[in-house]
């Protein structure tokens, strides 16, 4: 079966374009408001949606996403309610891949097998679990494999040649390159280093490589798109939505995605 992720990258490749990935926090500031934003993302040029599952202790995130998570928790968001957003979204969109993003404890608490089954049921395509490195993700990966879901691995500037094979072994869908050694919302990495890393990871994995962390402006989006199969923006969108509302967030998304989706050299 061809997955939504594979179809998306095939479409982008055929058009000779890079893609655009938007991260939003599920349930921030409320279930209804974040769902409305989510539903509007594809028309604003988003190729893949990363849907955040909030956690009380997001040690890999900067303040923007941490605070978004705390707002989401305050509004009663749970793993199940984020999955409900996906279910709702799928009622009128069967194309845009949804990748969940979050931390291990809430899904460990639910049980990996149950989480995988529920994610599949709600039309989710994959997940990135930040604090499950390859050494610890075997159990969740097995559960995901049963449902043909992609457990996306992260590669980082500290992933050297010795470690890269461990990171890409058994990956599916795409590899997410974290372009700076740091937390979300940090400064962007150097373009030359990004280009190098993307090539290395693409060769090692045979998969598309999306690049995120630190990208905030259309200019940066375009720079990274020159090297990456897709560009991810999170904190900037979350911040725009929080401070200025849905229309402002979507306007930013339109600019970022248009900048990313220029034809590749």
């Amino acid at each position: 079966m061809t997955t939504r992720i594979d179809k998306t990258f095939a479409r982008l490749r055929a058009a000779n374009q890079s893609g655009f990935v938007a991260y939003i926090m599920g349930g921030d500031p409320s279930h209804a408001a974040s769902l409305e934003l989510m539903k509007a993302l594809p028309d604003a040029g988003v190729d893949i949606i990363e849907l955040g599952m909030p956690f009380t202790d997001p040690a890999a995130d900067g303040p923007v996403i941490e605070l978004a998570g705390l707002r989401a928790l305050k509004s009663g968001t749970t793993v199940r309610s984020v999955l409900d957003m996906a279910t709702d979204f799928r009622k009128d969109n069967d194309d845009t891949p949804i990748i969940l993003m979050g931390y291990a404890n809430p899904i460990h608490h639910m049980g990996y097998a149950e989480f995988a089954a529920a994610a599949k049921d709600s039309g989710v395509d994959g997940a990135i679990i930040v604090d499950l490195p390859p050494e610890e993700d075997g159990e969740l990966r097995a559960a995901f494999d049963q449902h043909d879901l992609a457990l996306i691995r992260l590669a980082t500037p500290t992933t050297d040649d010795a470690r890269l094979p461990t990171v890409v072994a058994g990956t599916k869908g795409f590899v997410y390159y974290v372009s700076v050694a740091g937390i979300t919302g940090a400064a962007k990495g150097e373009n030359a280093a990004i280009s190098d890393a993307v090539n290395r990871i693409r060769t090692a994995s045979g998969l598309p490589v999306v690049v995120g962390f630190g990208i905030k402006t259309p200019e940066q989006s375009a720079q990274v798109a020159a090297h990456a199969d897709a560009v991810v923006v999170g904190s900037a969108i979350v911040e725009a939505f929080h401070k200025n509302g849905k229309d402002a967030a979507l306007a930013l998304v339109k600019n970022l995605s248009a900048a990313a989706q220029v034809n590749r050299p």
Partner: peptide, 20 residues
């Protein structure tokens, strides 16, 4: 060798921290 005490312990950190 994986830092496990029975089913406890391990190394649940972001990939950036694995090499260090």
């Amino acid at each position: 060798e994986n830092g496990r005490f029975g089913s406890f312990g391990g190394r649940y950190v972001a990939e950036t921290l694995m090499p260090p």
